[in-house]
């Protein structure tokens, strides 16, 4: 509903600004109270969802697991499908745009798969796997790991060391060497998959290897496409909280859609004093414009 007292200035520009950042369109129109309500309310909801979902409630693509191998080890962009929830989340504007940037980064061939370009020092969570005649013997371990490429410019072969502790309290250190299997740099998980063989002091391979994950930098996992295994992990660790987080971000986006509409068309029901003004018998022409 249009009201002559509401100065919409350039409605389309206001709507665009409102889409970019909740409340920005209303601020441009001089409607400061509504700008504050929309920006604070909608951004709190979106941020709250992000915090509850540990930063992983917003993503634009869900990576499909088409084989037993983790898509983290795929050099080519793995097959993925659209996250429909993102259709609501993106309406929040700039706060959700990193997901689009991460999608673009994700869709590039990742030459860092299985390639170490610099020294790595990280925590490690995974398993120590010893190959025996009876088969693989898998021991869950966690600890810290240091790795360096064998060439200064980076390489697929590495050397390093890992110190781990087992569930029964035992600790041990091992030397690492040979070719490394390292997951994609950009992926929607704070943990990066890694596989590496164990070597003895002379550099000979032992019949054992480590499989697990190391830390991935925030800029490489925040809002990046993730796979169902990561979703399973999130549901496992956060339970209902992850669903609540996703719903909060969706609601934030849908509320901003109404705010965008308000920036373009004005308040839906009217100015808000229609009943009082009808009683006083005053007309539009007598009332001062709000944002003149």
């Amino acid at each position: 509903m249009t009201d002559s007292r509401v100065n919409l200035r350039q409605p389309l520009l206001a709507a665009l600004l409102g889409f970019l950042l909740p409340g920005l369109g209303h601020l441009y129109q001089g409607r400061r109270f509504k700008a504050a309500v929309f920006s604070v309310g909608i951004l709190i909801l979106f941020g709250w969802g992000q915090v509850l979902g540990e930063g992983q409630a917003t993503y634009s693509r869900l990576v499909l697991r088409t084989s037993a191998d983790s898509p983290q080890f795929s050099v080519k962009p793995p097959a993925s499908k659209t996250s429909w929830g993102f259709g609501a989340q993106v309406l929040v504007g700039i706060p959700a745009f990193p997901a689009l940037l991460q999608e673009a980064r994700f869709n590039n061939a990742d030459n860092s798969v299985g390639f170490l370009d610099a020294e790595v020092s990280s925590d490690f969570v995974g398993a120590l796997i010893e190959t025996t005649r009876q088969g693989d013997l898998r021991t869950p371990v966690s600890g810290s790991l240091q790795l360096a490429p064998t060439r200064p410019e980076g390489s697929r072969t590495v050397s390093g060391e890992i110190s781990v502790s087992t569930a029964d309290g035992g600790t041990a250190s091992y030397r690492l060497g040979g070719e490394i299997q390292l997951g994609r740099a950009v992926f929607g998980s704070p943990r990066r998959s890694i596989e590496c063989r164990l070597v003895d002091d002379t550099g000979n391979f032992l019949s054992a290897r480590i499989e697990g994950t190391i830390s991935r930098s925030f800029f490489n996992w925040y809002m990046a496409p993730l796979d169902s295994a990561e979703l399973d992990r999130l549901h496992g660790s956060l339970s209902r909280q992850y669903d609540v987080a996703a719903v909060l971000t969706w609601i934030a986006g849908l509320l901003n859609l109404m705010a965008i509409w308000d920036a373009a068309q004005g308040p839906a029901y009217g100015y808000g004093d229609e009943g009082r003004r009808a009683g006083e018998g005053s007309g539009d022409a007598e009332a001062p414009p709000v944002n003149a």
Partner: peptide, 29 residues
């Protein structure tokens, strides 16, 4: 308890933002 701590602020924000899209006067909103 998390149902209340999450549902109440969510309801309050949704009501405030929704009503802000319906009217212009701050008191009415």
């Amino acid at each position: 308890l998390s149902l209340i701590t999450q549902a109440l602020p969510l309801t309050a924000i949704v009501c405030l933002v929704y009503c802000a899209t319906r009217f212009e006067l701050p008191e009415k909103i």
